[in-house]
């Protein structure tokens, strides 16, 4: 078993706890699927098993259910999974799990979306390990869409052409006025491409849209 980074594990637990605190409210503000995800998923039909990694309330798992026989929605937060149960519980198999240590068998996923989740992992090692584990679970001809917040987003002053991004904290304000901090790693687009390229995934295409990096990826070296 690889040696585990206990600091990063504690921080991942902290990110999970954040979403346990805000999940019910957060999910009400995440009603609609993102258009970039809709157009990615719309290119597929008759997939076997699809995965929504970091499924939140299930809004993208719902899209996958239209093109796949079986859909797994995985999230670290039970509060978000409870929201997903109400929304897509009949058509999506929900699993509580960690994006770095996926509880899924090798090669079992034909189509995956990993949207707005990678940037919550609190170290580069954890983000890299997560991309590697996604490659492990993808079938040899499987495809995935990976997105992360980028420095090109309007809310940051950072230069979009910087070589590396930065860590930051973005507060979530609950209806009562209480704020809950959330960790983000904001990717420089060049860094996003570099991290994906360094992982066991191969970048098929990449684009910047609405301040996010979107990469279409496939597992590297699995085709015979």
């Amino acid at each position: 078993m690889p040696e585990r980074d206990s600091d990063a594990d504690r921080s991942r637990a902290a990110v999970r706890r954040t979403y346990e605190d805000i999940g019910a409210h957060f999910s009400k503000t995440r009603e609609y699927a993102w258009p970039e995800v809709e157009s990615f998923v719309a290119a597929f039909t008759d997939c076997g098993t699809a995965l929504d990694l970091g499924c939140g309330n299930g809004r993208h798992a719902e899209l996958l259910a239209g093109v796949a026989d079986r859909v797994v929605g995985l999230d670290a937060s039970r509060a978000l999974l409870n929201a997903a149960t109400e929304r897509v519980g009949d058509e999506v198999a929900l699993v509580q799990g960690d994006a770095v240590e996926l509880p899924l068998a090798d090669d079992c996923i034909d189509l995956a979306v990993y949207v707005a989740t990678l940037h919550h992992l609190p170290s580069r090692d954890a983000r890299r390990a997560s991309l590697d584990d996604l490659a492990r679970v993808l079938a040899p001809d499987g495809r995935a869409l990976v997105s992360a917040w980028s420095t090109a987003h309007d809310r940051f002053d950072a230069e979009a052409d910087a070589e590396t991004g930065f860590d930051t904290t973005v507060d979530w304000t609950l209806p009562g006025g209480e704020t809950v901090p959330r960790f983000y790693h904001v990717y420089a687009p060049a860094e996003f491409e570099r991290d994906v390229a360094a992982s066991d995934l191969r970048l098929v295409s990449v684009e910047l849209s609405s301040g996010n990096c979107y990469g279409v990826v496939e597992p590297e070296g699995k085709r015979t």
Partner: peptide
């Protein structure tokens, strides 16, 4: 409640705050 909790044990907390 119908959902498998497959978090690594060190990411669970037995009594959520």
């Amino acid at each position: 409640d119908g959902i498998p909790n497959l978090l690594p044990p060190d990411m669970r907390d037995e009594a959520p705050a």
